[in-house]
Design a protein around this nucleic acid. Sequence first.
DNA 1: AAAAAAATGATGTACGTACCTCAGAAAATC
DNA 2: GATTTTCTGAGGTACGTACATCATTTTTTT
Lengths: 345, 345
Amino acid sequence: MHKPTTKDLAKAAGVSLATVDRVLNARAGVRPATAERVRQAIKEINFVRDFSAANLARKKDYQLVFLLPDHDDEFIDQIQKQIAGTSRVLTHERTKVSILRTSANDPHRVAKEIDNLSASQIDGVAIMAPETPQVRDAILRLHARGIAVVAFVSRQPNAKRTYYVGINNEAAGRTVGQLMARFTGQRHGTVLVLTETMQSRDSQERRHGFDAITAKYADRLTVGPSMETYGDPQRAEKIVKMALQSQPPMVGIYLMSHDILDIMHVIDDLGMAQRIVVIGHELTPFTRARLVDGSMDAVITQDVGHLVRSAIRMLRSKITGMDPLDSQERIRVEIIMRENMPEDA
Amino acid sequence: MHKPTTKDLAKAAGVSLATVDRVLNARAGVRPATAERVRQAIKEINFVRDFSAANLARKKDYQLVFLLPDHDDEFIDQIQKQIAGTSRVLTHERTKVSILRTSANDPHRVAKEIDNLSASQIDGVAIMAPETPQVRDAILRLHARGIAVVAFVSRQPNAKRTYYVGINNEAAGRTVGQLMARFTGQRHGTVLVLTETMQSRDSQERRHGFDAITAKYADRLTVGPSMETYGDPQRAEKIVKMALQSQPPMVGIYLMSHDILDIMHVIDDLGMAQRIVVIGHELTPFTRARLVDGSMDAVITQDVGHLVRSAIRMLRSKITGMDPLDSQERIRVEIIMRENMPEDA
DNA sequence: AAAAAAATGATGTACGTACCTCAGAAAATC
DNA sequence: GATTTTCTGAGGTACGTACATCATTTTTTT
């Protein structure tokens, strides 16, 4: 009636504990037929390895690494804080997490950094980096070395078998599109889409989703092309100022990447008076303040804490070979307005 | 450099392992001064008990119970499914969860059921029941017996020291209010608020939040009193039909409790043609279908999986005395539209 | 059939903690 | 100061698994 142990398993399979151990830990020296018998017995008695006991015996700590861009913004900041906050709990689970920053825009450096990782005693890596051939190959090398990898926040669709922890960006774009259409009421006008760069796949996916919805409202909403700031505040300012004078008048702005929020001050002067609907991404201290004062109307976000924990869980389950509770790992596209803003920092 | 163990702790405190054990497990027979020295050492060397090892040694399973109303609806159904789904993972964590259904509307029966629990070998209970004096007292009796308790989905603000796992219902109401105002564009008209009963604190809180926002739009939105269905479909139908003929015309409906969704068919006939904005609570197969076909515009929900896991984590941490990672336990007020609907069932 | 090789069993130690018993030390009581 | 009581220490076993060693059995090769 109790939970079956290795002993029960040995008895059920008609072998010794040593053999059970050999099969469970994929050690050499066991005939295929015998191994099969054990595997059969595992199913029959519904044996599940006690991982806490296993880890205890192994006296091993899992070494995980988050590879983050060295570009500093509030979102990355939140991720770092969450990782730090989570590590307290992880002590109980024999997991150590460290953070590595690297230049986001230099694929070769990122790839090199990843290669360095495989040299050290690392068990798993969460990589947040734009998708490039260099990065993709480096990830595949990690796989080859048996190091667990997940793509973090940025998808890596071309690196096969690399699980993605993050939101569905197309759905996020669709959601913004729908909110934009709804929040502008029945008004007619143009919508400005602003992003740091359209190079990234994330931006493209968001834009794609956004267009799919706004197209249905083409009779009253004119959506312009994605304007790129390239991280240049002056350029950004110029774009916004020009757009504010468009005809028909501007009714909405979609800030598609989280790292361009600093242009908000340009909008402030005119925007609030004109009731321009402003929607952006990621809930940060900055966007929180904007939601509260009404200069932004909604924020589409992903729960950073959940993001971090999910990445860690996925890595751990890849390492231990245990399959995760996938319903817990789905990252939701969250809509945050002033009214449903979570309380904490 | 490694994680300190009880042995290290003993050395640091200048006592034996046995004494350390006595202090850690609150066993009798240790002088206050000595105990204090140990506690001091715990802080100094930053000792944290290895709970997996501890649980292993204890060879104990935590017995948890969810007390749910026996009223059958999709929301309760989802909760049950999540509990079942979670239990697989819990096996690894020495936790067993069972479900107990009880009449929701009979406070005495609920209280009696709770009292029965304290008799059996139960370590923690998550209670979903309307707040009544009987239930409150029964909860306090659980506390007295050292059984961990959390209020689940329904708050129990008068049962002291009872942690609440669920959303902030006032914030939920505010969110609906804001969405209602936004989604109705600049249109003028009445808004119908429909609920099963206003008896429950949840309904009152939601209504309160809803009014706080819609009051700002009083120039164009006329919000009627909360209409109660008392679970009677015919009564519900009559209410809705009457409301649909109101002057000024109806522009929105707020379905305030999740258990009244069956009246949607009444709205269907007229609602969609009149572009009535319909907002309700809880994402279920039913509301999913409504969001997809457009007969509902938004759903305010709480992640049921998260709800269940959070309740379990809170109970476990109360039992073991370990404090939880509270940022993980905050239940968000989620806005779901067709565009950001999570994929799974 | 004998020898070599491969597979399996038996047994022990370890991980970090819980829990038990018994002996000895320290404190409180008389 | 002697006695009782209360603390403390020393040591062991257990939990479920990992990992190592060595003896023994079974299979394969010659």
